[in-house]
Computed example of a mutant assay.
Amino acid sequence: MIDIHPEQARTLAAIVAHGSFEAAARHLLVTASAVSQRVRALEVAVGRPVLKRTRPVELTASGHAVVRFARQLDMLSADLAEELQPGARPASVRLTLVINSDSLHTWALPGLASVAGKVQLEILREDQDYSLELLRSGAAAAAITTTAKAAPGCSSRRLGVMRYLPVCTPDFAARWFSGGATADTLAVAPVIVYDRKDDLQDRYLRGVSRKTLQPPRHFVPAAHEFGEAIRWGMGWGLLPEIEVSDELKRRTMVSLDPAARVDVPLHWQQWRHGSAALEEVAAAVLAAARLLR
């Protein structure tokens, strides 16, 4: 059985959080030599390296597991403090979550607001196709992801399906799609893309044409501004159905093809050995996700 001392695990977590042995030492109020000794003792206990001594340092797979353990231990310690001293938890529990921009912009934030008085939240914004890496690394306690299979040490629960519709303004449609949204017209009509990780628009284009289409692209990496770029007529793009349904009814926005959609399944993954605070946050997110399909 591997015996990991909490002090050593928390030291590794501090190195990762602050970027170096020296910065971790300042945070922990110990010498850099003491930090090095703790890491060496930890690697002896684990039986393998826990980090690569680069700048900034990089964790090994074993190091990720140890950091996750350290952060879970902190959450459990906060639970114990709450049990022993009721009312203490709001000032002590901190949770880091990974949530994609569209979920934050449309449905997730009201759920998180319901627990904001009980926990301190740090929300990392990352595309749902890439968020799982932050969970695996121990950087976050939970994440919204497209992956249903639970990551090591985590549990997975289905949230629902986020449906995206290809939309634009009526004026843009009249200018570029008077004959319909075909492969030929979509190849030349400007499109709005969130960032270079964003594959939604290309998923739609692949459904329209077997050949790769490369229309002019505007990159707008913020959920609100992405929608505003479409509303200003800069291009077409895919927006969540729950965001644009009223605009489609009012005809201030039109669909390129009423039958077209891109469905993105969403899952909530969190550390299996979490805390009462993490479970409260999970319950709030799952309740808010009832707006999804």
Score class of each variant (00 low, 15 high):
residue 1 M to K: 09
residue 3 D to T: 13
residue 14 A to I: 02
residue 15 I to G: 01
residue 22 E to F: 00
residue 22 E to C: 03
residue 26 R to M: 05
residue 40 R to I: 10
residue 50 V to M: 08
residue 54 T to A: 08
residue 55 R to F: 13
residue 55 R to I: 10
residue 60 T to L: 08
residue 64 H to G: 05
residue 70 A to I: 04
residue 72 Q to S: 15
residue 73 L to F: 12
residue 80 L to S: 10
residue 83 E to G: 10
residue 83 E to Q: 12
residue 83 E to P: 00
residue 84 L to Y: 05
residue 86 P to H: 04
residue 86 P to R: 10
residue 89 R to H: 06
residue 90 P to R: 02
residue 90 P to A: 01
residue 92 S to D: 12
residue 95 L to D: 00
residue 97 L to D: 02
residue 108 A to S: 12
residue 108 A to I: 03
residue 110 P to C: 09
residue 119 V to H: 00
residue 121 L to Y: 00
residue 122 E to S: 12
residue 123 I to W: 01
residue 126 E to W: 04
residue 127 D to I: 07
residue 140 A to V: 00
residue 143 A to H: 04
residue 152 P to R: 03
residue 153 G to A: 09
residue 154 C to E: 07
residue 157 R to W: 03
residue 157 R to M: 06
residue 158 R to K: 11
residue 159 L to I: 02
residue 164 Y to D: 04
residue 168 C to V: 01
residue 171 D to K: 12
residue 175 R to W: 04
residue 175 R to M: 09
residue 176 W to G: 05
residue 181 A to Y: 10
residue 181 A to P: 07
residue 189 A to W: 09
residue 190 P to G: 08
residue 194 Y to N: 08
residue 197 K to D: 07
residue 198 D to P: 09
residue 199 D to V: 13
residue 200 L to T: 15
residue 201 Q to G: 15
residue 209 S to C: 10
residue 214 Q to G: 10
residue 215 P to M: 08
residue 227 G to Y: 05
residue 229 A to Q: 11
residue 232 W to I: 07
residue 238 L to N: 10
residue 238 L to H: 07
residue 239 L to E: 11
residue 241 E to A: 12
residue 254 V to N: 05
residue 256 L to P: 08
residue 256 L to E: 07
residue 261 R to M: 13
residue 262 V to W: 06
residue 270 Q to C: 02
residue 271 W to K: 01
residue 274 G to R: 02
residue 282 A to V: 02
residue 284 A to F: 04
